[in-house]
Design a protein around this nucleic acid. Structure first.
Length: 479
RNA sequence: GGCGACGUAGCCAAGGGGUAAGGCAGCGGCCUGCAAAGCCGCUAUCACCGGUUCGAGUCCGGUCGUCGCCUCCA
C-alpha cells in the first residue's frame, strides 16, 4: 500500500515518494519560546508526531527536525514585560516546551535545533542571497527582494499583484517592494545582537527555518509543515530564500494543519481563548488530549470544548478496558487446527483492522478513520470476550494475545494508549494486590459481601480499580 | 477586494457516484450478590435550491450560514 499526502504546493493528494529510498526527512516549524504552548499549537505538534510515528511504523528511517525559535521580537517584548533578559525568557519556555511535549507523549524529534545556535549559518546564507542579487542592505537591515524570485506565491497561490492589492502592511519606504521581508534586523539599543557584516543585529524569522532545515536535513527535504497560518508568508518566504540560494526544490511535500478553534474562532494567544497544554494536562490524560486532537482530519478545523476532552477521556477508557481484557485473557501460543466460528470472526476482524488502519493512514493521514477502525475492532473484541468468557479455548487465548499485540502497535502510532509500566517497587505492590484480591475472592466464596465490598471500596480509594469477571477479578491502577 | 476552508444523528466525526464507520450522550433489555466493565436493541437521507447521471452527502452551478489567510500567530 502506498501513502498519499495532500501537498499544499500542488493542492492535490500525491503519492509519497521520499527523495532517498527508505528514508524520510521531515521538518516541522516549532514554537517561538515566549510562552507556554497551548493545545492549538499542540494540534500541529501532535499531528506531526503521528506523521513521524506512522512513517516509522511503515519502516522508514525517519529524521525528524523541529526547531525552536529562541530569538524573536516576541521574546524581546516578553522579556521587557517580565523584567528578565530575552535569553532567560527563551530558556524558561524552551524548558517548558520540552516538558510539555514529553507530557503529551510526543516523541522527541531527532533534532531540536535552536535558532541562536545557527547564527553563523544564517549569516552565510544571507551573504549568498546578497551575492546572487536577491537581497539588499539598508541601514544595517537586510531584505529579500521578492521580485527576484519569479515563483514567489506558488505555495500560497497568490500573485504579487494580489498581495499588493490587499496589502494592509504599513509600507517601509526603505524597502524596494512592500512585500520584501527582513533577513537580518539591526539591533536597537537594549536588544540582543550578534555581529554580522551589516552590523550588530539578529536574524529574521524566515531565514532561521531555511537554515536549520538545510543544516540538519539537506538542501531538499521530503516533508515540511506547520500550522496553516504559516503558508503565508512564512513558508512562502522560506521557499523563496532557500530555492534562490540552492537552485533546488526546498521541500517536496508541504503539509499544513488546520486550526483548533474555540468559541467559533481560531485559538490563539491574541484571542485569549486558549488553554495551555500544561493546564489541560492537569485535568485530562495525555492520551485523551491526543485522541481529541486526532479525532478530526488534520486539514479540517476542529472545535475545542472541555466536553469534547471529557468525551475523549471516555473513549480512551473504553480502549484501555479492552486492551487490559485482551492482555489478561490472552496467552502465548499458536493458533492450531480449526477455529470455532466466533474465533474465526475475531480473526477476520483483526485482519480487517490491520488493513483498514493502514488504508486510512495511507490516505493522507486520516487519523479519524484510523481511530474508527480501532474502535470498530474494540467492539468485536468486547463482543467476543462477553460471549466466550469462562470458556476460552487455547486458540481463543492465542488470538486474544495476537489482538492485544496488534492493538498495542496501532494505538502506539497515534500515541493514545500506554502500557502501564512497572518499576521494581510496583512489581512488589502488584504482588501484594494480587494477594489482597485472592483473599477477597475467598470472602466472596463465603458470600461475605461486607468484607468483599470493603476491600473493593478501600482499594478504589487508593486508586486501584477492581472488576469481577467470570474469568476472575481484574484490577488496574486508575491514574 | 484577492485566495481558501467548513456545513453529515442530541454532540463530535469518517466517508467523497452505488445506497450512511466510529466515539460521546440518551432510552429499553441482558449479564452481575452488588459494583464496574461489557453485550443486545432503538435514534440520520447528509444546510438549502437547481442540474448531470440508471443512480449523488459524494460531481457541476447557485443561495444561505460559519470560519480563516492576505499583519506576529501552530
Amino acid at each position: 500500500m502506498s501513502l498519499r499526502i495532500y501537498n499544499t504546493l500542488t493542492r492535490r493528494k500525491e503519492e509519497f515518494r521520499p527523495l532517498e529510498e527508505g528514508k524520510v526527512r521531515i521538518y516541522c516549524c516549532g514554537p517561538t519560546v515566549y510562552d507556554y504552548f497551548h493545545i492549538g499549537n499542540a494540534r500541529t505538534f501532535v499531528f506531526f508526531d503521528v506523521v513521524r510515528r506512522y512513517l516509522e511504523f511503515k519502516g522508514y528511517d525517519v529524521r525528524y527536525v523541529q526547531n525552536i525559535t529562541d530569538i524573536d521580537d516576541k521574546i524581546i517584548n516578553r522579556a521587557h514585560e517580565m523584567g528578565i533578559s530575552p535569553k532567560e525568557v527563551a530558556d524558561r519556555f524552551t524548558q517548558a516546551y520540552l516538558e510539555d511535549s514529553r507530557s503529551l507523549l510526543i516523541k522527541p524529534p531527532t533534532v531540536n535545533p535552536k535558532a541562536t545556535e545557527h547564527i553563523p549559518d544564517m549569516i552565510e546564507l544571507i551573504k549568498r542571497l546578497i551575492d546572487k542579487g536577491a537581497a539588499y542592505v539598508v541601514d544595517g537591515d537586510v531584505y529579500f527582494d521578492v521580485r527576484s524570485f519569479p515563483e514567489y506565491g506558488k505555495l500560497s497561490g497568490r500573485s504579487l499583484d494580489d498581495l499588493l492589492a490587499g496589502a494592509r502592511v504599513e509600507v517601509d519606504e526603505r524597502k524596494r517592494h512592500p512585500e520584501d521581508f527582513a533577513l537580518w534586523k539591526s539591533a536597537k539599543p537594549g536588544e540582543p545582537w550578534w555581529e554580522s557584516p551589516w552590523g550588530r543585529g539578529r536574524p529574521g524569522w524566515h531565514i532561521e527555518c531555511s537554515v536549520m532545515a538545510m543544516k540538519h536535513l539537506g538542501e531538499t527535504i521530503d516533508i515540511h509543515g506547520g500550522g496553516i497560518d504559516l503558508i503565508f508568508p512564512h513558508h512562502e518566504n522560506e521557499i523563496a530564500q532557500s530555492e534562490t540560494a540552492t537552485g533546488k526544490p526546498f521541500a517536496r511535500y508541504w503539509m499544513h494543519v488546520a486550526f483548533l478553534r474555540a468559541g467559533g474562532r481560531r485559538m490563539g494567544k491574541s484571542e485569549g481563548n486558549f488553554i495551555f497544554v500544561r493546564d489541560a494536562l492537569k485535568r485530562f490524560k495525555p492520551e485523551a488530549i491526543r485522541l481529541f486532537l486526532l479525532s478530526a482530519h488534520y486539514r479540517s478545523p476542529l472545535d475545542y470544548t472541555e466536553e469534547r476532552l471529557a468525551e475523549a477521556e471516555g473513549a480512551v477508557s473504553r480502549l484501555r478496558n479492552c486492551l487490559l481484557n485482551l492482555k489478561r485473557f490472552g496467552a502465548e501460543g499458536k493458533v492450531k487446527g480449526e477455529l470455532a466460528e466466533e474465533e474465526r470472526k475475531l480473526a477476520d476482524a483483526l485482519e480487517e483492522l490491520k488493513g483498514k488502519f493502514e488504508e486510512e493512514m495511507d490516505d493522507d493521514f486520516n487519523t479519524a478513520g484510523a481511530i474508527g477502525a480501532i474502535f470498530d475492532f474494540v467492539s468485536h473484541a468486547n463482543k467476543f470476550i462477553a460471549e466466550n468468557q469462562g470458556r476460552f479455548t487455547d486458540n481463543a487465548r492465542a488470538l486474544m494475545r495476537e489482538a492485544y499485540e496488534t492493538l498495542l502497535k496501532l494505538t502506539d502510532v497515534l500515541g493514545i494508549y500506554r502500557e502501564e509500566r512497572r518499576s521494581g517497587d510496583e512489581e512488589l505492590i502488584s504482588k501484594l494486590i494480587d494477594l489482597i484480591v485472592e483473599i477477597r475472592h475467598e470472602a466472596r466464596q463465603r458470600k461475605d459481601w461486607a468484607t468483599a465490598d470493603k476491600i473493593r471500596d478501600r482499594l478504589a480509594q487508593l486508586g486501584i480499580k477492581l472488576q469481577d469477571t467470570r474469568e476472575g477479578t481484574i484490577w488496574r491502577f486508575e491514574d
